[in-house]
């Protein structure tokens, strides 16, 4: 009797601790989100002065109004969606067949290809040679500069290859071959449908990467109408602190910074929400694949 009681108090204590820890984790994760949402609809002054710390104060939608009126932001949005869709498609188109081929035991020179791939993870051309290459290939200031150079990530290929190795038994392929299926058909009709988790995970990995990427765009694009959202945001949001300018400053710079600063104060948080919303919204739909996919790919060999 007393034993049982003890056990249940222990259980309760255990649950209590678990819930407290989970609760803490929840607060840590949730607070910045709520803060940003609240800040996006509070007046900039109350955010700056610290009056707003959880719920919105002096509610105003002026930030969103400015954002929705800003043609640059929408053009950037359009570009980003286009680059993400196109880029991710190319990524998957390259990664999946490559990984599948590398996962097959009867593929000749598999080891050699793997080694070549892995070497690129450690040695790269460096920024300026790559830049010169892209220019020489005529990809400078075009969409292709954003989607071709990073078409395949070796890391992702390795993860995908491991997934194929461990979930698609060679016997399956053999029996399909006996039934007369070609290699392409095996890949499309048998392997891919069985590998949806890894497809979803790769789509998410690549997609988020493309969505957030700004460096390649910064290096390879010069035409503003091609800029993705992240580059536009960077341009708007990164304002030099006026007071940190020591010399070489003029009234016109001061006035420009002041104007920019005011704009940034108003739209800063709204823009964070607008730019991350699509990713946040897509995530729950892919999440069920996510855990499974990553777990299976996690044991490499």
């Amino acid at each position: 009797m007393s034993n049982k009681n003890q056990a249940s108090t222990r259980d309760k204590l255990f649950s209590l601790i678990v819930y407290t820890l989970l609760g803490l984790a929840l607060i840590i994760v949730l607070y910045p989100l709520i803060y940003i949402i609240s800040a996006s609809i509070s007046s900039p002054t109350s955010v700056g002065s610290g009056k707003m710390w959880l719920w919105p104060v002096d509610i105003t939608f002026s930030g969103y109004q400015v954002i929705f009126k800003n043609a640059d932001i929408w053009n950037g949005y359009k570009n980003t969606i286009f680059y993400t869709v196109l880029g991710t498609s190319i990524n998957l188109f390259v990664t999946l067949p490559c990984a599948y081929a590398l996962s097959r035991r009867n593929f000749m020179a598999k080891k050699w290809f793997m080694k070549m791939l892995v070497i690129t993870m450690f040695i790269s051309g460096g920024l300026i040679p790559t830049f010169i290459l892209i220019k020489a290939l005529g990809m400078y200031n075009t969409v292709w500069a954003l989607v071709i150079p990073n078409a395949a990530s070796v890391y992702n290929i390795v993860v995908t290859r491991t997934f194929f190795q461990s979930t698609i038994p060679d016997e399956l392929e053999e029996s399909a071959a006996v039934d007369g299926a070609s290699d392409l058909r095996i890949f499309w009709q048998i392997v891919l449908p069985l590998s949806m988790p890894i497809v979803a995970v790769m789509a998410l990995f690549y997609g988020v990467g493309q969505w957030n990427g700004y460096f390649n765009a910064m290096i390879y694009l010069s035409d503003r109408s091609l800029y993705p959202l992240q580059l536009i945001l960077r341009e708007i949001l990164v304002v030099q602190d006026m007071s940190s300018n020591t010399t070489n400053f003029s009234t016109t710079s001061a006035e420009m910074l002041q104007q920019k600063q005011q704009l940034v104060d108003v739209i800063k948080y709204g823009v964070m929400i607008v730019s991350t919303l699509p990713v946040i919204m897509v995530y729950p739909f892919l999440q069920r694949f996510f855990v499974k996919g990553v777990m299976i790919g996690s044991i490499k060999g």
């Binding site: 900039p44 002054t45 109350s46 955010v47 700056g48 002065s49 610290g50 602190d241 006026m242 007071s243 400053f249 009234t251 001061a254 006035e255 002041q258 600063q261 104060d265």
Partner: peptide
Amino acid sequence: QQDEQKRAKGNANRLGVFSDWF
């Protein structure tokens, strides 16, 4: 603090001497 916080204080008329262009 950053400019943003300084300005919030300025807007609330809490500053005696402060730096800025104007």
